[in-house]
């Protein structure tokens, strides 16, 4: 009996090795484990056995049945795996073909700079305010201590619309408007971004339309040192933590004292290079302490209040930061130019 079982077992083992398809496997299952299968038929011997022998045979029978099942199942798994592998192989794609173009647009570089500056100041408690682009001579000049006939008006050749109305030549009129509109004459902390216009012919460094951001702080005990501290934060945030700033005396009719501000060159760190014209410093903005005539003209008592103001040109900042050499690029809007700015800044 045992020999018989051993024979069937060996038969099965050798046949399993030979088969190549799932169908063969099914045939084999029928041949050995089907109703008339050679293993199933072994049970016919049961009748001829004693009770004691039956028990022994039962154990042997179950063992070979289980063994056969395991063998066939293992083979089945093997076949299925092969099948799957074949299917996967057929599904191979060329991962190097281009991906779907999901166009997400981008922010204009000038807006990027304006956003960045606005965020710096908003985080310091400044409000962002706006003013009209078509402005009165009164606000654009007169309230800023630039009466008609003042020689400093030459520096800002303006587009007039009537004798009293013009396209604003600076964002400074928003200073005067903000102070004027503050009926309580309470402290002010604002920045005013916007478009300005001057009668300059367009070339690589001049544009008849450009942007400016004006900053104004009016409060008790505001000093030149406060201006410096504030602009230091701006310079470091815009051009890197290692930057320093330098004050040079200058003249603007609406500030006294007036200050021209240089930032240490972010390219060479102050050693001198082509960007800073070998000086180690780059001029970035004009600023100063609000002129008492401006305060007075807008209803603030200059004996009680002092303030500082500054004006920065986003074009200049963007040109320096990103190495743009022609200001006209901002206004021709070549899509490739715009695309270049459609990414995080990186750097530090």
């Amino acid at each position: 009996m045992q020999e018989k079982i051993q024979e069937i077992k060996e038969q099965l083992q050798s046949k399993v090795k030979e088969i190549t398809t799932l169908n063969d496997l099914n045939d084999l299952r029928v041949e050995f484990l089907g109703k008339k299968g050679s293993i199933t038929e072994l049970s016919n011997y049961m009748r001829e056995l004693s009770n004691e022998e039956k028990k022994e045979f039962g154990n042997l029978f179950n063992a070979i049945k289980n063994e056969a099942n395991d063998l066939l199942n293992a083979k089945k798994e093997e076949f299925e795996l092969e099948e799957l592998q074949k299917k996967l192989n057929e599904e191979t794609i060329d991962v190097t073909l281009p991906g779907t173009k999901l166009t997400v647009g981008g922010t204009h570089p000038l807006t990027k700079v304006i956003d960045e500056i606005e965020e710096i100041f908003v985080s310091m408690g400044y409000d962002v305010v706006e003013g009209p682009e078509i402005e009165q001579d009164l606000y654009n000049f007169e309230k800023l201590n630039l009466p008609k006939g003042h020689p400093a008006r030459d520096a800002q050749d303006s587009f007039y619309i009537t004798e009293e109305m013009l396209l604003r030549s600076q964002t400074s009129p928003v200073q005067a408007r903000t102070m004027d509109a503050n009926t309580e004459k309470s402290p002010i902390r604002v920045i005013c971004p916007g478009k300005v216009y001057r009668r300059d012919d367009d070339d690589a460094t001049h544009s008849h339309q450009f942007t400016q951001i004006e900053g104004l702080v009016v409060d008790k005990d505001i000093s030149l040192a406060d201006l410096k501290g504030t602009l230091e934060i701006l310079a470091k945030r815009l051009f890197g933590e290692d930057r320093e700033i330098r004050f040079r005396p200058s003249f603007f009719p609406f500030t006294e004292p007036s200050i021209e501000v240089d930032v240490s060159c972010f390219k060479c760190g102050g050693a001198g290079c082509s960007i800073c014209k070998e000086t180690g410093w780059i001029e970035i903005l004009g600023s100063g302490m609000v002129h008492p005539n401006v305060l007075k003209g807008c209803g603030y008592d200059p004996e009680k209040y002092t303030g500082f103001a500054f004006g920065i040109g986003p074009e200049r900042v963007a040109m320096l930061k990103y190495g743009i050499t022609d200001i006209r690029n901002f206004y021709t809007n070549d899509i490739r130019f715009l695309q270049d700015f459609n990414r995080v800044e990186g750097g530090e």
């Binding site: 908003v122 310091m124 408690g125 706006e130 505001i222 410096k228 040079r248 005396p249 200050i259």
Partner: peptide, 23 residues
Amino acid sequence: GYDHVVGTLPVVPMKRGRYSKKA
């Protein structure tokens, strides 16, 4: 010489900066 000016920050009450509704 303005190079002697040491930067400080204005001593002013804390407040949140705001954008206008339009901005």
